[in-house]
Amino acid sequence: MSFDLWVLLVERGWGFALLRGATVTLAVGLLGMLAGVIVAVPLALLRWRRLPIFSQAVDGYSILVRGVPGLLVIYLLFFGSIEWVQRLATAFGYQNSADSAYPFVIGVVAIAAISCAYSIEVFRGALDAVPVGLLEAAKSLALPTHVTFFRVTLPIALRLALGGLNNVWQMTIKDTSLVSVVGMQELMRSAAIAAGITRSPLLFYCAAAGMFFALTAISQTLFSHTERLFNRGFSRG
């Protein structure tokens, strides 16, 4: 059995295929999360300031995406865009590169769209949790609006948002597995291919589970460190 394992994972190279898949998973997760957060911050600000129309639009987006399964969002983005992307790529003569890069790009966009909706809620909650007294203090010092925002509101809100962002990231890295259903070669897809060819699904799906677990466990440790760093000088609880 252990001999078989060695042959399958190392000599036939499936272990490396899985590792390559794990790197793609990590890349999609990181890029998706980053893009999601970057978009979420201004949207959360719109929501926080209660700008009419914008605020409702942001709410609608967030409720919709958080209320439907990630799989459905991925199907929408993937099937909904495949035609015009193909047409665009053919028109400009990038047929081949479009075929290979397309699942990755759409995967990142889909993951970003999902993580963005959750991040909005995190940032909104954090902005709402900034103590009013501090803002009033800033006002009484006659600090200009942008100084108040960048020097008072934002640093405090970011610290408060950290725990929630950790949750979003844990969810995002797990959600990347969903992109495999539309053919992106990440960890899950690599495992499925290996399972199909070698006819040992148990081994490869368990290996994929192990790698996902390693990814979430490592990022959890990193986040705990960061949180401790951010919370220096604050009493616990």
């Binding site: 597995s177 899950m188 399972a195 699904p201 148990l202 994929a208 589970a209």
Partner: peptide
């Protein structure tokens, strides 16, 4: 710590192997 998709595949495709 693992995606539900992996869990469902291990249960449906993986366990049937034994």
């Amino acid at each position: 710590g693992t995606p539900m998709l992996v869990q469902i595949f291990v249960i449906y495709y993986g366990l049937g192997q034994l």
